[in-house]
C-alpha cells in the first residue's frame, strides 16, 4: 500500500471511529457508556494523528497520542469519581436525571412508560434424560442473566 492510500484509509477509519463515538455520546444516556464513547472518539483522533505522523515522517503525532493517552487516563479517573458521586445522589447512571439547568417555566422531561421486554424465559441447557434434573439456584439465575 502506498503512502497516500494508507493515509486516506487510516483517516477514514479514524473518522468512522470518531463519528461513532460522537453519536454514542449524543444518544446514550448511561454515563458510563457516554464515557466509553468519548474514549472511542479519542481513539479515532489517535488513529488520524498516527496516520499523519507516518505520512509526514514526523514524531509529533505519535507523541501527541501519548499525551492523549495520559489525558484520557486522568479524565477517566476524575470522571468515574463524578459518576460514582452522581450515582450516590440519584441511584441511577442517567445523564437525563440532571435537568436543573432548564428554564424554570418548562416541565421536567419524563420518559414514556417503556414496554416490558417480552423475551422468552431463558432456555437452560438440559442434561440427557439420564439422571435427575439438577435444581437451579434461584439467586444465581437472577444474577447471571443480563449482566
Amino acid at each position: 500500500m502506498t503512502s497516500l492510500p494508507l493515509l486516506q484509509n487510516a483517516l477514514s477509519v479514524g473518522a468512522i471511529l470518531f463519528v461513532l463515538g460522537l453519536v454514542g455520546i449524543l444518544t446514550r444516556r448511561n454515563l458510563i457508556v457516554m464515557f466509553l464513547s468519548a474514549e472511542l472518539m479519542l481513539q479515532g483522533v489517535s488513529v488520524s494523528l498516527v496516520a499523519w505522523s507516518r505520512f509526514h515522517g514526523d514524531w509529533g503525532g505519535q507523541v501527541l497520542v501519548i499525551f492523549i493517552l495520559t489525558v484520557a487516563a486522568c479524565e477517566a479517573a476524575i470522571a468515574l469519581v463524578f459518576v460514582l458521586q452522581a450515582f450516590a445522589r440519584t441511584g441511577r447512571l442517567d445523564a437525563a436525571a440532571w435537568q436543573s439547568l432548564r428554564e424554570s417555566s418548562l416541565a421536567r422531561v419524563v420518559d414514556q412508560q417503556l414496554p416490558s421486554i417480552d423475551t422468552l424465559p431463558p432456555v437452560w441447557p438440559t442434561l440427557s434424560p439420564a439422571g435427575v434434573l439438577p435444581q437451579a439456584d434461584e439467586n444465581e439465575t437472577l444474577q447471571r442473566e443480563h449482566v
Binding site: T27, A96, W98, Q99, R102, E103, L106, V109
Partner: peptide, 14 residues
C-alpha cells in the same frame, strides 16, 4: 427560544 432550554445535557451537546 426558551422552549429549547430543557436542561437536558445531551440535547445541548447535539
Amino acid at each position: 427560544l426558551r422552549q429549547l432550554q430543557s436542561g437536558m445535557l445531551q440535547r445541548y451537546a447535539l
